[in-house]
């Protein structure tokens, strides 16, 4: 569980987040949504203390994150940033690097680290790709490899910045299904999403950001039907019932 109180972040003297209050419950998928430039990535980077100039309180299971070292944070929160490089390494090596927070100096990966990395690779369905170079994978496979690295990190919280961007629909659904399984296993999953339909189907809790402020939060349906969403995006989603439940759409 992550609780954020009056979180403010500035970059080059300009305040980008203006006192955010939000909570992200454990065992759930929390989605952060908002128009471009609303501060979604900054919010995630601030929670992880990756932004240089932040203030406010960030509690991880009730513990002040400001008191944790970078290594302690890495043992509790895994993060998939928005722009991921394509490193010149094999998939197996990349996933093994998820165990880096657990190494003490001099850093050598132990048998346990290799086992965790192998399990993570198997879980995302890439166990046969260990020796393949990352640059030789498709976009969807690379995303899975990074997810495996985050899993190898063995944390209670996983944060993902636009994990479905650049993925085809099958890979998007695959990643979201896997995220649901992870949340079902008790992990706190926080992700930035743009697709309202995906938000409605997969998010248990939604935080709507606009201009660096929380406009509203709550269940996916509540937030998607809110007037704050219409104000933030300038569109009003429509809804319809189908056999498999509620769906939403946005008219062009």
């Amino acid at each position: 569980m992550i609780t954020v109180q009056d979180l403010r972040a500035s970059y080059e003297g300009e305040e980008i987040l203006h006192g955010i209050n939000a909570s992200f419950p454990e065992g759930k998928i929390s989605a952060i949504i908002g128009p471009n430039g609303s501060g979604k990535s900054t919010a995630i980077r601030s929670i992880l203390r990756l932004m240089p100039d932040i203030s406010g309180s960030i509690l991880l299971d009730g513990e002040d994150m400001g008191r944790l070292t970078r290594q302690e944070i890495a043992r509790r929160i895994a993060y998939l940033p928005q722009s991921r490089s394509v490193p010149d390494v094999t998939v197996g090596r990349l996933v093994l690097q998820g165990r880096f927070p657990y190494l003490s100096y001099p850093r050598h990966y132990r048998r346990e680290d290799h086992e965790k990395a192998d399990q993570a690779l198997e879980w995302v369905g890439l166990s046969g790709f260990s020796e393949r170079k990352m640059e030789n994978l498709s976009g969807g496979q690379r995303q899975k490899a990074y997810l495996a690295m985050a899993l190898a990190q063995d944390t209670d919280v996983i944060m993902m910045d636009e994990p479905t961007t650049f993925l085809d629909i099958k890979n998007q659904l695959d990643l979201l299904d896997r995220s649901r399984i992870l949340a079902g296993s008790g992990k706190t999953v926080i992700m930035i999403l743009h697709d309202f339909e995906a938000v409605l189907h997969y998010a248990d809790h939604v935080v709507l950001l606009c201009d660096g402020r929380v406009m509203t939060s709550g269940s996916a349906e509540k937030v998607l039907r809110s007037k704050e969403l219409t104000e933030a995006f300038g569109v009003t989603p429509g809804f319809y019932e189908a056999e498999d439940g509620l769906h939403c759409y946005v008219k062009g």
């Binding site: 980077r45 992880l48 990756l50 070292t69 970078r70 290594q71 944070i73 890495a74 043992r75 929160i77 895994a78 993060y79 940033p81 722009s83 991921r84 490089s85 490193p87 010149d88 390494v89 090596r93 990349l94 690097q97 998820g98 880096f100 927070p101 990190q153």
Partner: peptide, 14 residues
């Protein structure tokens, strides 16, 4: 090797 993954990923790995 961690450093070559990019600043954000490297920091998030501790």
């Amino acid at each position: 090797d961690i450093l070559s993954l990019g600043d954000d990923t490297a920091q998030s790995l501790g």
